[in-house]
Design a protein around this nucleic acid. Structure first.
Length: 420
DNA sequence: TCTGGGGTCCTAGGACCC
DNA sequence: TCTGGGGTCCTAGGACCC
């Protein structure tokens, strides 16, 4: 048996933990640079605000309903997530952290006990210790646990915990096809066209037909709905295959100076991430482009790939390689809106050196990176950085409404929540 | 005026091998 | 008109997830 614990309106709930006066009010959290809605409180959902809506198109709804608007505060969300996950681990050792606000839990260790009861208890503890409300779904497969979770959220009378019953027909009929885990917009549309409208309908479909019309994942999803497990709990995450660092600019960028600083910054962040995971990259991809909403003659998109020989995670090596391939692609006169650096063919362990590599140089680079990481870890990110990342603040985000980083910065600790 | 930032997997088709 | 039978690797595009 599996359970899925999913935090309710996670980012909005995090904002509320330290600002209880936001309870029961419509609240949205925006993407980087305050562009789009990425999270909503229930009240904001009820007003029809959608994830992905550009905030400037929602102006009327926001003003008329006094919707509270917050910039994203990932330091806070990441730390709150860690606390929730830690609490979950006290109830079962078999936990897969599936996303920042969700975890699958294998319930086998709880045999003989009433699963719903234990999960209700866990839910209460998480709420008490972290202030975050969660919903929990229980089922024979991960897909069914997801489905039960969705059902719990839709039906307040479940008080946050639902379990797929035997027989499962009624609950499966109550869940729309697009709400099934693994069935997205395109497939839902296609399925609806052939009369498949609910989870129950999909579970009743012939497996081979599903595989032919969609793919093997869709087929496995249908089988999971019938109670046959195909997706396992993945506790030790597989080594990542790619790593991307990119961002839109708060203000469009025209000069090579600013663009190069942005690319160097992304290269820096990506390299740090590599070292953090003790892996190296063999392939580097750099891209930048103007706004997708520009007129055709004002659009420009550039990307290039280069092999890193030997594979590396050294910041200055990656910055140099990135700038070397980016420079010839930059065109004067375009307003660039986004840039990024992607690393591929990642691997861990020993690296095959090439004939002309110098082990002495590599050892030196390694010591330098260790020192760099140690300083930045002790004294704050960016304390020590490469000049190539610049001083123009091109990477600074527009974040007008960010709440304090209550739990991760000494200067921003909450001083008093009790009104004294 | 203003439109996020990450990931994974599967499939088809083409190029190549014997 | 007829035109072998197996493989692998790579890439682009499209689907999905949060």
């Amino acid at each position: 048996m599996y359970a899925l614990a999913d935090c309710n309106n996670f980012y909005a709930s995090c904002e509320r933990v330290f600002e209880p006066h936001l309870e029961n009010k419509p609240l949205v959290v925006l993407s980087n640079n305050d562009g789009c809605v990425i999270a909503r409180s229930q009240e904001a959902k009820d007003l029809g605000l959608k994830v992905g809506d550009p905030i400037f198109t929602c102006k009327n709804t926001v003003l008329q309903n006094n919707v509270i608007v917050r910039s994203s505060n990932f330091s806070l969300y990441g730390d709150m997530s860690r606390r929730v996950m830690q609490t979950i681990r006290l109830f079962s050792p078999d936990v897969e952290v599936y996303s920042i606000d969700e975890a699958f839990i294998k319930l086998n260790g709880l045999k003989g006990r009433n699963y719903e009861e234990v999960m209700r208890q866990m839910r209460a503890v998480i709420l008490q210790w972290t202030g975050i409300p969660v919903s929990i779904g229980i089922g024979k497969t991960k897909t069914l646990a997801k489905l039960a979770n969705h059902y719990a959220k839709q039906n307040p009378r479940m008080r946050g915990v639902a379990r797929v019953p035997h027989p499962s027909g009624e609950m499966l009929q109550a869940v729309e096809i697009e709400d099934v885990w693994g069935i997205g917009r395109k497939w839902s549309e296609k399925l609806r066209n052939i009369g498949i409208k609910t989870a129950f309908d999909l579970a009743s479909m012939n497996s081979e037909n599903i595989r032919r019309s969609f793919n093997i994942i869709a087929m496995k999803t249908a089988m999971e709905l019938r109670g046959h497990a195909h997706f396992r709990l993945e506790q030790t995450p597989e080594q990542r295959k790619t790593l991307l660092r990119s961002r839109s600019f708060a203000k469009p960028v025209e000069s090579w100076q600013e663009l190069s600083e942005a690319i160097a910054s992304h290269a820096t962040r990506a390299s740090e991430k590599l070292r953090n995971e003790d892996i190296v990259a063999k392939v580097l991809h750099v891209f930048f482009h103007t706004s997708l909403y520009n007129q055709a003659d004002q659009r420009n998109s550039a990307h290039a790939t280069v092999e890193l020989i030997p594979p590396t995670n050294v910041t200055h090596t990656i910055i140099k390689a990135a700038l070397d391939i980016a420079k010839p692609m930059w065109k004067r006169g375009f307003k660039y809106k986004r840039a990024g650096v992607q690393l591929l063919e990642l691997s861990s362990g020993t690296v095959q050196c090439s004939l002309f590599d110098s082990p002495e140089e590599q050892a030196k680079d390694k010591r330098m990176m260790q020192l760099l990481d140690a300083v930045n870890s002790n004294m704050g990110a960016g304390t020590l950085h490469y000049a190539a990342t610049g001083f123009t603040k091109v990477m600074e985000m527009k974040q007008l409404q960010r709440s304090p980083r209550y739990t991760t910065h000494w200067d921003e600790l909450p001083k008093c929540l009790c009104g004294l």
